[in-house]
Write a protein that binds this DNA or RNA. Structure first.
Lengths: 245, 245
DNA sequence: CCCAATTTGTTCGTATGTATC
DNA sequence: TGATACATACGAACAAATTGG
């Protein structure tokens, strides 16, 4: 049975990292739930067909992420196992969607600026290229853990004070309401996945090589007029999406 | 400006692999479309803040994947760029969704079996644990390139001949129709992302460390009775999803 | 309280891979 | 093309902590 879960060598990804990724996935999938701890280092080494040192490197990385904690003589305990559910629908709201899961939310304004719309942004917001748009960068945390980093664009004339409103309310929905937009609709969402870039690793407090889920979303008012285009990055080991039809 | 896109060292992922991943993403995003080729090695080396040898290793890997082709004296040409769009809605259909993009589709039956429903599967299909279900493994290709690998479960009594019907028609929709189910609805979809496991690397023809998008989906008939639960894995550098509300 | 088994922690050494110059 | 520095991976051995008889 040994070697069944073997990892691959010399592919530019260190063995300890491949093992860390696999163990993290197993923890997320609840495969070790019965005991609350992961198998002994020697057992994992046997399963993956590597030396115990290599497994230890992997577990050290997971320990650094706060996912496991090793206790001498006992074993390696699972510290944190959380994958937030983020529902996507016509009424997609970050605060309401995550907040319902009994967590403490934060929405931090990282930066904002007014700039002329690029061709891409103008197309999405149905504006002429070069029209002033407000670009807003925000970081969201749940229970103190970063769960998303977004870059949003708003029509500049209509939502002039949105950055300030967002800073105070920490919610896009509330900021919109302050500016007279009582309701809006998620018109389309595109989902992809990629490796985290250095800036995301910093902002989202990820370990290098981590995976981010990327959404590109368009929100419109009830008349179908675009009010926000947003690109948001979620750490894939902390978040998943659900779509209910 | 140099160093803006810098990569990170000593994190279990070799620099050449990080660069290969980033360049592959850039190609997929069409960032080099104007010229049809990627920047010279020395320019990339400058951008990423690494030695030219390291860039060469990255491009060699991309060449091995058939994504770029280096021509002495000219530069490195983009050979293949494809990221399929997979729409998710109440009427999600693989064949119709991808087929509309003018591609050649294949649906290969890898294996099938009848087994007693596990607790998880029984819950999703609204059956009693242990009820016979049909488990069906399939691989889908577009223009000969693997784009998904799925494991599906069907209520055993109602869809006894589905494996055979799928083998002939290469389509779940057609197989359902053969068995008297004219229409069905995608009730819920869960989306997450993770690293590809060795078996997926083989089946989907991926390189190790690749990212897979994972969907867990429930299809029901028009009365809301579950007809299929499926876990499907898509290579993240070949596919993305869109949700229209 | 002691003992044995289990499990993590640490320290040698050696070989190979990665990256720069 | 070497030369150099560091990261990765393996192997063997031993130390320290925990558990259960």
């Amino acid at each position: 049975m040994a070697g069944q879960r073997q990892v691959q060598r010399q592919n530019g990804v260190a063995l300890w990292r491949q093992i860390a990724d696999r163990v993290r996935t197993s923890i997320d999938n609840g495969e070790y739930d019965h005991s609350g701890m992961i198998p002994p280092e020697l057992v994992l080494a046997e399963q993956f067909g590597v030396n115990r040192h290599t497994v230890r490197s992997a577990l050290a990385a997971l320990g650094q992420e706060g996912i496991v904690r090793a206790v001498q003589g006992r074993g390696t305990l699972i510290e944190r196992r959380q994958r937030l559910n983020f529902p996507i629908s016509k009424r997609t709201r970050f605060t309401a969607g995550i907040g319902g899961q009994g967590r403490e939310l934060q929405g931090l304004l990282l930066s904002f600026d007014t700039e002329p719309a690029s061709e891409t942004i103008a197309t999405h917001l149905c504006l002429a290229t070069g029209t002033p748009v407000i670009k807003l960068e925000a970081l969201r945390k749940v229970d103190g853990v970063p769960v998303s980093r977004s870059t949003s664009w708003f029509p500049g004339d209509r939502f002039a004070g949105i950055a300030d409103a967002y800073r105070r309310s920490e919610s896009i929905t509330k900021a919109f309401a302050e500016l007279g937009l009582a309701d809006y609709i998620r018109t389309s969402t595109e989902i992809s996945a990629t490796h985290a870039e250095p800036s995301e690793i910093t902002d989202l407090e990820l370990s290098p090589g981590a995976i981010v889920l990327v959404t590109k979303a368009l929100n419109t008012d009830l008349d179908g007029v675009p009010v926000q285009y947003a690109i948001t990055r979620f750490p894939a080991d902390r978040v998943h999406f659900t779509i209910e039809n």
